[in-house]
Design a protein around this nucleic acid. Sequence first.
DNA 1: GCAAAAGTGTTCTCAATACACCCATGA
DNA 2: TCATGGGTGTATTGAGAACACTTTTGC
Lengths: 244, 244
Amino acid sequence: MTLMDIDIEKALHYLQSGDKYLPNLSLDCVIFGFHHNQLKVLLLKFKNLDFWALPGGHILKDEDIEVAALRVLAERTGLTNIFLEQFSVFGNLHREVKSFMHKVLEINQLQAPLDCWLFQRFVSIGYYALVDFSKVNPQPDTFSEVCDWVSLADLPELAFDHSEIIQKALETLRASLDKKLVGFNLLPTTFTMSELHKLYETILGTPLRRNNFQRKMLSLGILERLEKKFTGAANKAPYLYKFK
Amino acid sequence: MTLMDIDIEKALHYLQSGDKYLPNLSLDCVIFGFHHNQLKVLLLKFKNLDFWALPGGHILKDEDIEVAALRVLAERTGLTNIFLEQFSVFGNLHREVKSFMHKVLEINQLQAPLDCWLFQRFVSIGYYALVDFSKVNPQPDTFSEVCDWVSLADLPELAFDHSEIIQKALETLRASLDKKLVGFNLLPTTFTMSELHKLYETILGTPLRRNNFQRKMLSLGILERLEKKFTGAANKAPYLYKFK
DNA sequence: GCAAAAGTGTTCTCAATACACCCATGA
DNA sequence: TCATGGGTGTATTGAGAACACTTTTGC
């Protein structure tokens, strides 16, 4: 097995940068996107390990926690101005961060003292973000070889307790969909009713009657109807809408 | 002005116990109770200062965060087995914990080094708890002279950002009332429909039709009707109910 | 003309609302 | 017998579900 190189200098710098951040605290971002009628999350694959993980990070000592989350999001997606919401804190004693970190360092042949800050207990603040899939430019970090979208229906093996975190994020998203109308953050600025319909069906995991869905959405008074969109398909051209 | 004494030994011990806890992390508990048709929260009044605050605490290095919250609740109420839910994290850079701590120590003539752990930045995890008012036995802590119920409609001046925390807790409670049926945790094991009705009206802040409310509750199938309760009042005796 | 998908109309159902009425209780 | 609050009956309303139908588009 050949190993992927990691940037040793960057890695060592990271291992020694514990005093920049609030200790014992981390944050994990569940970044949702919608593409090809599938709900996806942006994940990182560790170099030389068959584990994926959520984009995450730490909070600078003089940084708002929300600003820290936005910073992490910007680093992984290239985007600013992202819809973002805190949804839960994961503070179990047995989150098993330490053993994963050991694996990551070992496989990459990095030495770290036993009292390295990364082996501490971490209480993690969970954020979920909704982005326009087409605008994202995924960027791996030092310890990951890939940063890519993964379908929620087909998640790989995840490190830490990140499966649980994604599950909880999804539940929060579902609950907020009707109540706070957050779904539009997953679409481009203009979209067809059919696209919105598919989005709702996918997130909620249940079929919704096309015609009733349309009436419901229109009755909310939050959509502005624009020109028609001619796709070349042999059917009536749908209107484009934008969110008011 | 005469000062209330504080237990110097306990206070000093507390000032030096920073290494027991996860640094930069705290938790605040919004404990709701219902009494005399009013929604109340349990607050502490600082000794020799005109500020009140939420019961709070820190997380031991080898303690689950939820266990820590239950420990704080037990210390202030004498109760175990409390309904408890995490609702938000407060991590603003400018929470201004430090200046309040200075005031508290100064007025009580306690010396603390400038690098004392209490002057750190704190990210605080907010929990709300619902308790049976009649079962609570409020216990002040070292730095407080009073631990008592305060009506939400009549809050005193609060330390830190505790007003904001209470507000957010109330919003969460309102949203959870119908969805998760958590309200019963605020009542004794048996109660009349009228009591439940008043509870809902008080929490939601809106009048609810008595008869429709009754039908709605009964139709949920979560109440068990028990014997009648004869109060001595000149009217039909209401049934007692208990939550299934 | 035809298939495919978009858009709208109409009925039905059920729960929430609003109103009315009867019942038990103690003074 | 009366006032008071508890409990139930019933008509009305409105939102959502289920059905049908018309319209537009490219082949």
